[in-house]
Amino acid sequence: MSIVLLLFINGCFAQEQFTVYFESNKSDLTPKERLRLEDWMYKNSKSKIVAINGYTDEVGTTAYNDSLAQKRVDFISEFVLEKVPIRDDFKTRSYGEKFNQSENRAENRKATIYYILEKDLHRENEILGIKDIVIDENLPLFEKIKLAKKGTKIRLKDINFFQNTFAITPESNNALNDLLYVMQNNPTLQIEIQGHICCVSSDRRKLSLERAKQVRRFLVAKGIPITRMAVTGFGINHPIYPIPEANEEQAAANRRVEIEILSK
């Protein structure tokens, strides 16, 4: 883990934080603080941790306090591991005594978790100040994949479905074969296929998920390992245009399949 902290830690509008406190010279939690942390983990099992900072008071040498602050970070990191999702580029920092301390020493013996709530995860990069890569929509899919990085979303143009079903129309074959070519020629590429629908108030039939699954079924039938492809259905939760749409052009834009790059 890196101990370099990104600038976003200093204040983004939708980032949350949670702090636990330690006894003097301790790097493990009291039963009371452990219960607070466990309660936070239970309530945030689908949130995402982006950073953990550790702190100490000024008692002891600078070297000792730096080490103690890092031990507190390590303790919290191990405690939450596999219980709350953590960003792949998760950052930590141990401050020791080098920070703006409170006059109350007990308030300085702490570790702070910075995280994003589940409801805000679709805006994760925006919250963290990470600019999405802008890729020319007119490029062939294989060129878009070359330019893409982890987290990049690419709309699969010309993949359409028969109305109110997850059956793919014959006119979609070229687009499906383009995706197949990309998967065959990039054997380490892993993607999430994401379905979106339009025009209705809810996705009670989970049609968006079934459409994503149908695209995956096509690829699996062509020999692409299912383990390389996650699927999700967003329903109407992330429309490009407000629902109800003003015209068919807006509806078609909302009714889409996208892929997100998980790893290359």
Rank of each mutant, 00 (worst) to 15 (best):
F99I: 07
S24R: 11
A252F: 01
E245M: 10
I86V: 15
H122L: 09
D28V: 15
F22W: 01
L29K: 11
I3S: 15
D136R: 13
P31S: 08
T232C: 07
I197M: 05
T169Q: 13
T30V: 03
A63T: 07
T30Q: 05
L121V: 00
E124V: 06
R217A: 10
L189S: 13
S202R: 12
I193M: 02
N25R: 14
L7G: 14
N104H: 03
E118C: 01
L179R: 06
E258D: 12
I76Q: 06
L209N: 05
A252W: 00
E245A: 11
A111T: 01
I113S: 04
D28I: 15
A167T: 14
M229L: 13
D57V: 10
S202T: 11
I236H: 08
T165R: 00
F18H: 10
A221T: 08
G223Q: 08
F22M: 03
N44A: 02
Y42W: 09
N254H: 08
E137H: 15
Q214W: 05
V220A: 10
H196C: 13
G96C: 01
E258P: 01
N53G: 14
D88R: 09
A221C: 07
V220W: 04
E58L: 03
N108A: 02
G11E: 00
E126G: 11
K26D: 05
K32H: 10
Q101S: 05
L207M: 12
N65H: 04
N254P: 01
R36E: 11
Y241Q: 10
L180S: 14
K98D: 02
I127K: 09
T30Y: 03
Q184R: 15
L7R: 13
N177L: 15
I259W: 06
I116Q: 00
A167K: 13
T30R: 10
Q184G: 00
L121I: 01
R205L: 11
L68T: 09
K83Y: 04
I193T: 10
G60I: 06
K149L: 04
I159A: 07
N177C: 12
K26E: 12
G151E: 05
T30W: 05
L81Y: 13
M229K: 11
I259N: 03
P239W: 10
D136C: 03
E137N: 12
I261M: 07
D136Y: 12
Q184V: 02
S47C: 07
Q70Y: 06
P242Y: 02
K71G: 03
N138A: 09
T56M: 00
P242V: 06
G54I: 00
F218S: 11
F8V: 01
I52L: 02
E260K: 14
K144S: 04
Q214K: 15
E107I: 00
K131P: 01
L29I: 09
N185C: 09
T62G: 06
I49N: 15
L117W: 05
E16K: 09
K149Q: 10
F161Y: 10
G233L: 14
P140K: 10
W40L: 02
I224S: 07
Q250I: 02
D132S: 11
I168A: 09
C12I: 04
I193N: 05
Y95Q: 08
A14R: 12
E248S: 12
K153Y: 07
N108W: 04
S67Q: 09
K91L: 01
P170D: 14
K98P: 00
Q101Y: 06
L117C: 04
